[in-house]
């Protein structure tokens, strides 16, 4: 059992947890992740590590409510526990002095990019960070990023904060302005990472993306997280999660991540149904009717 010491929403549907996990806290390096299982009947899902504190033995994770498991997680509070948390998994980011590094975070991907940005800065790089969200509320970790970056550029899709547009617009501007870029790291939704890869491929800028495919054990045993890299299967949990963006087949990634969409939808509906039932404490026969409905 892994105890939650603090839990706080940092944006609508996005929660930061501080979890007691001394072994993981001690070993975590930028770019790595954890796998959690909320309860006995839960699935195993990979999650982003924002940072860890080896002294206190704590790990911060940032979770966006998307399906049943993340909704369940985000209903937990300080004092509650997560049944299983294993990590840190995956290869750490390659940190060295590249020169100028552009770190791009889309939505909750910003939390995964943050420790790498921080390490890149410590390694003596000039760090230009570009973060974005659909709206003002979904721009995450801006102040944290400012602390570890030379420049922070912010976009929102709807223009409700900073500059209206996409993070890739900012990247294009940098390229067009003739900014020398030695490395781009992009973490975010697949369409964003794909767009970044397409843009930098033409410019021959080394680009790394952090992938988040479906995963079970996270140790290389199951092969569920395989991604097509230049026509060859590689496993995100042991060969990644970071890959050369120009070699990744994003279409296959999208296709494989959609494999359980129907089941995920069904899980989510059942969960919402149960949550609603709990709230309303409906009379007995109405409950039976609901249960039957759910079975269909």
């Amino acid at each position: 059992m892994f105890k939650i010491l603090h839990a706080q929403f940092i944006a609508p549907g996005i929660k930061r947890f501080v979890i007691e996990a001394p072994r993981i806290a001690r070993k975590q390096r930028p770019g790595q992740f954890v796998i959690i299982r909320v309860n006995e009947k839960g699935e195993r899902i990979p999650l982003t590590i924002e940072k860890s504190d080896p002294e206190k033995g704590t790990v911060n994770i940032v979770v966006q409510s998307l399906g049943k498991t993340t909704h369940m997680l985000n209903s937990l509070e300080a004092g509650d526990s997560i049944l299983d948390m294993v990590g840190p998994l995956g290869k750490p980011s390659e940190i060295e002095k590249f020169g100028t590094v552009v770190v791009m975070g889309g939505g909750v991907g910003t939390a995964m990019a943050y420790p790498t940005a921080s390490a890149m800065k410590r390694a003596g790089n000039r760090v230009i960070t570009i973060i974005g969200g659909r709206n003002k509320d979904l721009v995450l970790l801006e102040s944290e990023m400012r602390e570890v970056s030379d420049t922070v550029l912010v976009t929102t899709d709807d223009g409700s904060y900073a500059d209206k547009g996409l993070v890739t617009d900012k990247l294009r501007q940098l390229i067009e302005n003739g900014t020398r870029i030695d490395l781009v790291l992009a973490v975010g939704p697949i369409p964003m990472m794909r767009a970044v890869a397409d843009m930098t491929r033409k410019e021959r800028i080394k680009t790394v993306v952090s992938l988040n495919p479906i995963m079970i054990d996270g140790t290389g045993m199951c092969g569920g997280c395989r991604v097509l890299v230049e026509g060859k299967s590689e496993f995100a949990c042991v060969d990644g999660p970071e890959f050369d963006a120009h070699r990744v087949d994003f279409a296959v990634l999208v296709q494989r991540n959609a494999m359980y969409r129907d089941a995920e939808k069904r899980s989510m509906e059942n969960y919402q149904h149960e949550a609603a039932e709990k709230k309303s404490a409906a009379p007995a026969d109405a409950e039976v009717a609901c249960a039957l409905e759910g079975k269909k």
Binding site: K41, E43, R44, K68, D217, G224, E264, S267
Partner: peptide, 21 residues
């Protein structure tokens, strides 16, 4: 390995009672 892990470790054959699909 993945197929059997889903079935055996994660009880996917008991979906949706268990969450693994």
């Amino acid at each position: 390995n993945e197929f059997l892990t889903r079935i055996n470790l994660m009880h996917a054959y008991e979906f949706p009672n268990y969450d693994e699909p």
